[in-house]
């Protein structure tokens, strides 16, 4: 089987997985909206939590993958690692955007304001900026080898930056206290809510994995096609 054919097969194999993940997300929606009790003090809007938190977890997971794979690329110089990092960044961007959209929609009814510079949202915002910079940088370099190198450097530095931004926001908030963030149900979640949250985290992580695999296969396919075309030209 040629590289092009095996990449195409990978794509086809992934489609049922995508369908399954989407169905599971629908199940999460039904469970969260209809079968999980609302939190008395915050009202139904608190349920945004079941989409916001798993998306945030995935966003940071994706970014961790970008950082780790970027380091691996600089050490091993395998172009497939570069494609994996690129895929993780793009898919991670989508999840990060969902966090930034659902965050304010949750914040407005709960805290009365669309945006507060709280630790999690601020950290996510700057994560978004770093991933954006990563994707813009990739778009601005034509040569594949240099693009991969530059992106890897930015990916690693970006991953190093995350704990410092967290520390900055944390320090800022301890000195300038803000309204206490209401947690979903106090320090410990009641059983039904915890179960929904864990279910949602599992489903969204699976969804991320499937999208990542598909996006990576797309990149491999494009690469394989470009190689095949170059070979035909040289022949």
């Amino acid at each position: 089987m040629t590289p092009v054919e095996s990449a195409e097969r990978a794509l086809r194999r992934a489609v049922p997985w995508i369908a399954t993940s989407l169905a599971l997300i629908a199940a999460v929606y039904v469970r969260a909206l209809a079968f999980t009790p609302a939190e008395a003090a915050q009202g139904p809007a608190q349920k945004i939590f079941y989409v916001h938190v798993p998306s945030a977890w995935v966003a940071f997971l994706a970014f961790g993958i970008v950082g780790g794979v970027s380091l691996a690329y600089l050490l091993r110089k395998d172009p497939r690692l570069d494609l994996l990092a690129e895929s993780a960044a793009e898919v991670g961007m989508v999840f990060t955007s969902v966090v930034l959209v659902t965050g304010p929609i949750w914040g407005k009814p709960i805290w009365g304001t669309w945006w507060t510079w709280d630790a999690r949202l601020t950290l996510t915002l700057f994560l978004w900026f770093v991933v954006l910079a990563y994707l813009v940088l990739r778009g601005a370099v034509n040569e594949p080898e240099r693009r991969a190198r530059y992106a890897a450097v930015l990916g690693i530095l970006g991953a190093l930056l995350v704990p410092f931004i967290y520390a900055s926001v944390y320090l800022f908030r301890t000195i300038h206290p803000m309204p206490v963030i209401l947690r979903a149900g106090g320090p410990t979640l009641p059983g039904a809510m915890l179960a929904t949250l864990l279910f949602s985290i599992a489903v969204f992580t699976l969804f991320f994995g499937v999208l990542l695999y598909y996006r990576y296969s797309l990149a491999r396919l494009a690469d394989a096609r470009a190689d095949a075309a170059a070979e035909r030209r040289d022949a």
Partner: peptide, 23 residues
């Protein structure tokens, strides 16, 4: 050193650098 070798070099530098200035 990276920005200068890209298209839109002057625009690229702030885009790359901004998040790193926060801490």
């Amino acid at each position: 050193s990276m920005a200068v070798n890209t298209r839109l070099a002057e625009l690229m530098l702030p885009v790359l650098l901004l998040p790193f200035l926060v801490p």
